[in-house]
Design a protein around this nucleic acid. Structure first.
Length: 274
DNA sequence: AGTTCCACCTCAAAGC
DNA sequence: TGCTTTGA
DNA sequence: GTGGAAC
């Protein structure tokens, strides 16, 4: 489940193959991947022959700024990956889109679950189609501004962290990680966080995203604690601290609880995480 | 408007 | 082993 | 991970 760190890692991986290159051939292989367009064929027409000036990221979106002023948008959804390949490399399953550059290499979009998409939008379409808040890494609001955005909200803080219109980039895993780091219960009404908690929360967002990127992103599931320790990746503090539902917390012994917010489940220690 | 719930897909691991 | 269920 | 329906 790619979140901001995975998306940023993917963007950096793509840069040398994309920035300053001209797109010489494009193919959309799966109509669902182009579903954000009324006419998915527009993607091919609008990308063909264009130069990609810069490859940027906003939240979980990868944005290729084109010479024409349009923007080539990639969203990885739940299972999207980007592969760089030669035209004669065998195609792996679920390759739903590719673009070849003047370097002769192909940028291939693989997405088994098809929750991701590719688009090429005008500035107007971009504004209308992508509901985006401030980027959680590059443009994270100071805690007073966060307080203002959260004030009066009764929804659990975790839901609000997942709302890309408030701050964009966090998903289920990183939201849990951030709340653990800040020692804030996921279920707390967003508007009731204290000034101190808000500060800790903000600091935790900065720290956890940095560490995630440093680790090269991670595709671990929220159930990674079920794996042998070595496989889970060091920066994910929470997964080592806690355990499975009903089992004693590894650090304090309190039975672990399972909570479901917005259809996403997670496990936490009601004692360690106030 | 804010909040909650569910559909959208395919695959792999776990359960029986 | 193979089918069903669960969760990402 | 997201968008839309329903309350």
């Amino acid at each position: 489940m790619p979140e901001l760190p995975e998306v940023e890692t993917t963007r950096r991986f793509m840069v040398p193959h994309v920035e300053g290159r001209r797109i010489v051939a494009v193919e959309l292989r799966h109509p669902r991947t182009g579903r954000r367009h009324e006419n998915p064929a527009d993607i091919v027409d609008r990308l063909q022959g264009q130069r990609v000036d810069r490859l940027e990221r906003h939240g979980k979106f990868i944005l290729g700024r084109l010479g024409s002023g349009l923007t080539w948008v990639t969203h990885l959804g739940m299972s999207g990956r980007v592969l760089i390949a030669s035209p004669d490399d065998p195609e792996i399953a679920h390759t739903h889109f590719w673009a070849r550059t003047d370097l002769g290499t192909e940028i291939r979009f693989i997405d088994p679950r098809t929750f991701g998409f590719v688009a090429v939008f005008t500035p107007e379409e971009l504004k209308k189609e992508l509901k985006l808040g401030r980027d959680a890494l590059a443009d994270l609001p100071r805690s007073p501004q966060l307080a203002a955005r959260l004030s009066g909200r009764r929804a659990p803080i975790k839901s609000l962290l997942l709302d890309q219109r408030i701050v964009s980039g966090l998903g289920n895993i990183y939201a849990d990680e951030v709340l653990f780091r800040a020692r804030v219960r996921p279920t707390r009404p967003g508007g009731e966080l204290t000034t101190d908690e808000l500060k800790k929360l903000r600091a935790a967002i900065v720290a956890v995203l940095r560490e995630g990127i440093e680790a090269g992103g991670t595709s671990l599931s929220d159930l990674a604690y079920l794996l042998p320790d070595g496989q889970a990746g060091g920066f994910r503090e929470r997964l080592f601290a806690y355990g499975r539902e009903h089992e004693p917390c590894r650090r304090c012994g309190t039975p672990i609880e399972r909570i479901v917010i917005g259809g996403r489940s997670s496990y936490y220690c009601p004692n360690c995480q106030k």
